[in-house]
Every structure is written in structure tokens, then in C-alpha cells.
Nucleic acid binder design. Structure first.
Length: 646
RNA sequence: GCCGACGUAGCACAGCGGUAGUGCAACCGAUUCGUAAUCGGUAGGUCGGGAGUUCGAUUCUCCCCGUCGGCACCA
């Protein structure tokens, strides 16, 4: 005798278990047509499922946010059916919905290529047009195994075998085609609609494990209607335009080449940007009570053995050898990180509890032999520079330091144009140093510090560093990929391994806790993010070329050069454009290369000693006496941390 | 590292078994023009590297390097 409560609070009694379809029909034909699924007490269900007990019911239509996920998941099923119809012998594995779309992993001797897409898409449209209902069927484990074994679907058999004993095993069929699936689904394949597109193929390991076979993954995107699909495709094109690799080339910021794979050649423009960021970071760290140090690039392996990095990461370290016979037995490594070096500085002399928290910062150049497939523009490189710091503190200072750090990080991200970021909490990995009690303490300390700092995080199980749990601060690039930039890691292990000690108030010798932290992460990666975030149109204070002084006629060229030199002397990144080109042409050139301010000078300005400023790509012009213009530019180019507070 | 695709002038691209073209950029000349592309000319490539097939390879095959898209990795 279920009573169904609808979102408006109204209640409908039924004298027997009812399906969502029936309830929708009892409310009205419009809803019966529009409903594609339902939420029963908040849980998404097939419309055809029976409701036996009292429940709160909400119908899902295409307009609801849940609809996209259903469309995408259903679309993945249709993709799998289409592929098996067209390519017999292909085994299916899994096919979830993901952000913006879905994928399906297939096992086939010959991987798919984009050339297969037109045929597959055509077949998918055919299957969608058939409108076969999605039919759910619950089976026993043995039945499921027998079914998939008979079909030669070995991966499905493995999946079923790995399900928990009490797991309900459901199958979904659309016409003749059946897949193992938890559901829910929409009513039938026609509910998917026409707005989908296959995007790319990729290799992916079965169950995400590199020791397993590689499957052929087909990615697709799917939307409620064609308009949404077009908008998404358009957005992808826009994103490509701001790709940092493309802008890095166009704006002459940097390049990379074969002879130094994964390392950046910074050009003058790029280095100006880099320096603006580095100068800014130094000021912020100085103001926040950090002390900057500098430690060696090349360090004997003994230190890495002591820290534990050698054991875990030696395959990813660059080793340095020398010709000298006496030195030949030594193995040096380019430092892959700064922490062990910072502990060496900490260990010089005797530290007092009065020194703590000791915040030791380094603009640290590190090298890691990253797997070739991981390299990505300047976002993931082999030679990079961390805005690294280690805070040596007592255990009960962790929370206060975390609060301070998160405040600093938030403020810096805001200044740099990233008001939004996400936080992940990564706890103990399977392979780790330190005993469980230590990990309990470290994770507990970081969690309570998060609570104190008001940090919302999502748990990222098993992804911590080998020496401790970490917070990861994640930013998203133009193409929608997420990158870890900031990090905060609690470490009880390295101080132990490298024998860091301080004298406590009671005279005993104690181990400090080490907080590893970075805000940008790597300058290279963060600059990549900045390029994409601003699409190359940087705020004036970080722009590589802040002002171009463009002459209209040769008679004004000397004045243009004089002004550029004056601006440069006053700390503005300025240059003169005295090319024999029309002013129209110069305007276009400098708009295209994202110069923020164009100062135009002709005979009139040279005589009056004035400047006409134009903030590109705007059209407005402002004529100012030279000294006023300089003052204006200096004010506008002031980095955010140096602006006087109102 | 794994799967797949790609690599032609500084950049963006075309070509495709008979030793390479277009646009922009560069260089030279003319023009001195007041805010979204002035005109003319010149030069530039061992077609990523190596091997093989072929009378002949930028084009076909194999190996290597690099890049791109994923996966895996990320102290």
C-alpha cells in the first residue's frame, strides 16, 4: 500500500506496488511523456521499477541535471552494441559516463581508429532510432557468469567474479543486446536523442593497472540537444586557442626541443613573465615569515638513500657522473626535490623550540626523469622550479601553520586570477615509510588542521606521499584538465630518517614535524596555467611586454625610443616600435601579440612631449603629458601585493 | 613506460613513387602614411634521424627520436 509523496508535498496512495511509469501517467500525459527516470527517496531508479513502500518520488526529465548522466550512460551502452554489431569478436568491458560524455573500453586485437567513427556513429543512430526499451533483469552470480562465459565475454566474467557476495547483479538489455550494469537507465534507446559525437580513441589498461592488457577506449560526448552539443564543441575550439603551448610559441615565451626533452628554453618574453611571478612570490613569502635558502643541484646518493627517495624513485632520478677516476665510485643525483637539503640546513647547529616554526623556503630547481608519456608542454616537465618551503614545527603547531598556509595560498591564488580551486586530501599509500601509529597521528593532525582552517576537501584514498598525508590544491586548465599546483604535506618520517632534532622547553631533544608546502607547485606549470587562464592577455603587472611605444612617422622615432628608454628606466617593460609600417599595422600586430598598452607618438606628441595611450584591444585613446602618462602606467602596473590598501 | 596518431621553410599548412609549394614572418627597395594588415622584389627546406624495398623514396616497410590524445606514473 505505498503512498507516494511528490516534490510539491502532495501525496498519492496506491493500493498495490506501482511503477514510476504508472505514477507519472496518473499525474498527467505531459509528465508521462517527459519523465525519463525517477528519484525514489533521492536514489535514481528506472521508471519501470516498482515502488512497494511509502516513498518520496521525483521524476527526472531531460531538463534535470541528472538527465545528462543518464543520456551519457545509455549512450555508452548503445556504443557498445554498435561496436559489437559492426566488429564481431570484440569483447566489452566497462563504459561509464564521465564529465562531458562517456567512454567504453573494448578488447579487440586491432585497436579502433577515428576512421571507424562514421560507421559506428551511423550504427548508433540506427540503434537509437529503434527505440528498444532498456529492460532490467536480476540474476544470480552463477547465471551471470554462465551467460557471459557462453558469449566469450571474459572481462565481464572477471567483473562478476570480483563483485561482493551480497551485491545484486543486474543485467540490462536493449533489444537483443545485453550488458552487465547496475543502472539505472532511461526508458529506451530513443530517449538518448541525436546530440552525441564520438571524440577520440585511446589505450587504457584493464582495471587501470599497467600490468593488465591494454584496451581500446572510445570517448564520446553526449548532450540533451544539438544546441548543447554545438556549444560544447565550440567551447573546445576556444580552449584550443588558449592552449599554453600554442600561445607560448605565438608570444615568444618559450620553446622546447629534442636535445633537452622536458626542459624549457625561456625566451626574453617568457622570462619577464617568470620574473614578475618570482618577484611577487618572494615578496609574499618574505612578508609571511619565510626565510629563503639555496641548496645544491648535485647531491651524493647517500643523502637520497637516507631520505628513502633512492629506494622509491631512483629510476626517476637523473644521475651525474664525472670522468675523474677518484670520483668514479661516487654516484650523484640531480636533486629531484629540496626537502633533504633543507633538513641539512636545519641540522646545522642546535635548534631550539624558540626557532619553531621555522619556515625555510627555496626557489628550487629540481629534475625528475618523468615517464615520456607524462610530458605535457610546460605543465609536466623534467626540469622544473618549485616554490618550495618546509616548515619545521612542533606537532601542536600544525593546525596554526595550516591555517596560515591556506590563507596565504588563497590570497596568492586570488591575486593571480584563480579565485576558485579544489582541495583533495590524500591519505596513506600502500607502499609507505613510517608505522601505522605515525600515520594515524599525521592524518589526524592534517584533518583537524583542515577543520580549523575551514578547508573543504574530497578524499583521495591511498594517494599520499610515501612519508605522509597531503592536501592537494587543484586548478583546471583551459582544456578542462586538472593540475595539482599547491600542496601541503605533513611529514613525521623524514625528520626521523635524517635525524632532525631540536631542544624542547623542558630540555629534552625532540623531532620536529616537517610540513612540505608549495603554492604554485612549479613555476613552469603555474605559468602554463596563467597563460591559459588569461589566454595570453595578462594583467599589466605580469605582462611580458607592458607598453609598446609606436611611432607614426620617422620624425617621431627618436621620441619613441626616448620614451621607451624612460619607461624602462622607471621599471616598466617597454619597447619602441619604430618599424617603417603604418600605424594601423602596428596596432594590429600588438593586439595580436597581446600587448596590454600601446603608446602612439607622432609629430604632435614629439613636439608636445606627450603620449597617447590605448589599452589594447580597446579602441579608446587617452592623451597625457609624458610625466602624467608615466605616473599612470606605473600605478597601473603595480603588482597587487604592492597596492596600498584603501 | 603502454596503446594510437602525427613529424614538410621561423610559424600555420598543401603535396605524395620521378629529388617540393601557398600564406604569414624574415631580408632588400619604394612609401612617411594619425589608431584593426601599404606596394614591389629577394632569399629560405639533406621533407625528424637511420636502415631497407625500388631504376628512382618526402611519398612504401622497419627501427630510433620527438610531439599530440588517452592510460599508467607524479617524492
Amino acid at each position: 500500500m505505498p503512498t507516494i509523496t511528490l516534490p510539491d508535498g502532495s501525496q498519492r496512495p496506491f493500493d498495490a506496488p506501482v511503477t514510476g511509469t504508472t505514477v507519472a501517467a496518473s499525474i498527467g500525459p505531459g509528465l508521462a511523456k517527459a519523465a525519463i527516470a525517477m528519484a525514489v527517496d533521492g536514489a535514481l531508479r528506472d521508471l519501470s521499477e516498482e515502488i512497494a513502500a511509502d516513498a518520496a518520488l521525483r521524476f527526472i526529465t531531460r531538463r534535470d541535471p541528472e538527465a545528462l548522466e543518464l543520456i551519457r550512460h545509455d549512450c555508452a551502452h548503445v556504443l557498445a552494441e554498435a561496436v559489437q554489431e559492426l566488429f564481431p569478436g570484440t569483447q566489452v568491458t566497462i563504459g561509464p559516463s564521465i564529465e562531458n560524455g562517456f567512454y567504453y573500453d573494448f578488447h579487440r586485437n586491432q585497436p579502433f581508429t577515428p576512421e571507424d567513427f562514421p560507421a559506428i556513429e551511423a550504427k548508433m543512430r540506427e540503434i537509437i532510432a529503434r527505440g528498444a526499451p532498456f529492460a532490467r533483469q536480476v540474476v544470480t552470480r552463477d547465471e551471470a557468469i554462465a551467460l557471459f562465459r557462453a558469449k566469450g565475454e571474459n572481462f565481464k566474467v572477471e567483473l562478476v567474479e570480483s563483485l561482493a557476495a551480497d551485491q545484486v547483479i543486474s543485467l540490462y538489455s536493449q533489444g537483443q543486446w545485453t550488458d552487465l550494469c547496475r543502472g539505472p537507465h532511461m526508458r529506451n534507446t530513443a530517449d538518448i536523442g541525436p546530440a552525441f559525437k564520438l571524440m577520440k580513441v585511446a589505450g587504457a589498461y584493464w582495471r587501470g593497472d599497467h600490468r593488465n592488457p591494454v584496451l581500446s577506449r572510445i570517448y564520446g560526448t553526449a548532450w540533451r540537444d544539438q544546441k548543447e552539443l554545438d556549444a560544447y564543441l565550440h567551447q573546445l575550439e576556444e580552449a584550443e586557442r588558449r592552449d599554453h603551448r600554442r600561445l607560448g610559441k605565438e608570444m615568444h615565451l618559450f620553446h622546447m626541443q629534442e636535445e633537452s626533452t622536458g626542459n624549457v628554453f625561456w625566451h626574453p618574453n617568457g622570462w619577464r613573465l617568470y620574473r614578475a611571478l618570482e618577484d611577487y612570490m618572494r615578496r609574499r613569502l618574505d612578508a609571511a615569515g619565510y626565510q629563503e635558502v639555496r641548496t645544491p643541484q648535485v647531491v651524493d646518493r647517500r643523502l637520497w638513500e637516507a631520505s628513502g627517495h633512492w629506494e622509491k624513485f631512483r629510476a626517476n632520478m637523473f644521475l651525474a657522473s664525472v670522468e675523474d677516476k677518484d670520483e668514479a665510485h661516487r654516484i650523484n643525483a640531480l636533486k629531484p626535490m629540496n626537502c633533504p637539503c633543507h633538513v641539512q640546513i636545519f641540522n646545522q647547529g642546535i635548534r631550539s623550540y624558540r626557532d619553531l616554526p621555522l619556515r625555510m623556503a627555496e626557489v628550487g630547481a629540481c629534475h625528475r626523469y618523468e615517464p615520456s608519456g607524462a610530458l605535457h608542454g610546460i605543465m609536466r616537465v623534467r626540469g622544473f622550479t618549485q616554490d618550495d618551503a618546509h616548515i619545521f614545527c612542533e606537532e601542536d603547531q600544525i593546525a596554526a601553520e595550516t591555517v596560515k598556509f591556506v590563507a596565504l595560498l588563497s590570497s596568492i591564488y586570488r591575486d593571480l586570477g584563480f579565485p576558485e580551486f579544489r582541495v583533495k586530501f590524500s591519505d596513506r599509500p600502500a607502499v609507505r615509510a613510517g608505522d601505522d601509529a605515525t600515520w594515524d597521528r599525521a592524518e589526524g593532525a592534517l584533518k583537524s588542521a583542515c577543520a580549523t582552517a575551514g578547508v573543504d576537501y574530497v578524499l583521495n584514498p591511498g594517494e599520499g606521499a610515501f612519508y605522509g598525508p597531503k592536501l592537494e590544491f587543484v586548478l583546471r586548465d583551459a582544456i578542462g584538465r586538472d593540475w595539482q599546483c599547491g600542496t601541503l604535506q605533513v611529514d613525521f618520517v623524514l625528520p626521523e630518517r635524517l635525524d632532525a632534532l631540536y631542544t624542547a622547553e623542558d630540555g629534552t631533544r625532540r623531532r620536529p614535524v616537517m610540513l612540505h608546502r608549495a603554492i604554485l607547485g612549479s613555476f613552469e606549470r603555474f605559468i602554463g596555467m596563467l597563460i591559459e587562464q588569461y589566454a595570453g592577455r595578462f594583467p599589466l603587472w605580469m605582462a611580458p611586454r607592458q607598453v609598446v611605444v609606436a611611432s607614426i612617422v620617422d620624425d617621431a622615432a627618436d621620441y619613441a625610443r626616448e620614451v621607451a628608454a624612460l619607461l624602462t628606466a622607471r621599471g616598466i617593460r617597454a619597447e619602441a616600435d619604430t618599424r617603417n609600417e603604418k600605424i594601423n599595422r602596428k596596432v594590429v600586430d600588438h593586439i595580436e601579440t597581446n600587448v596590454p598598452i600601446l603608446a602612439v607618438v607622432g609629430r604632435r606628441e614629439a613636439e608636445e612631449r606627450s603620449l597617447v595611450l590605448r589599452r589594447l584591444p580597446g579602441r579608446e585613446q587617452q592623451t597625457l603629458p609624458l610625466e602624467d602618462a608615466v605616473a599612470t602606467l606605473l600605478r597601473e602596473a603595480t603588482p597587487p601585493d604592492l597596492l596600498s590598501q584603501p
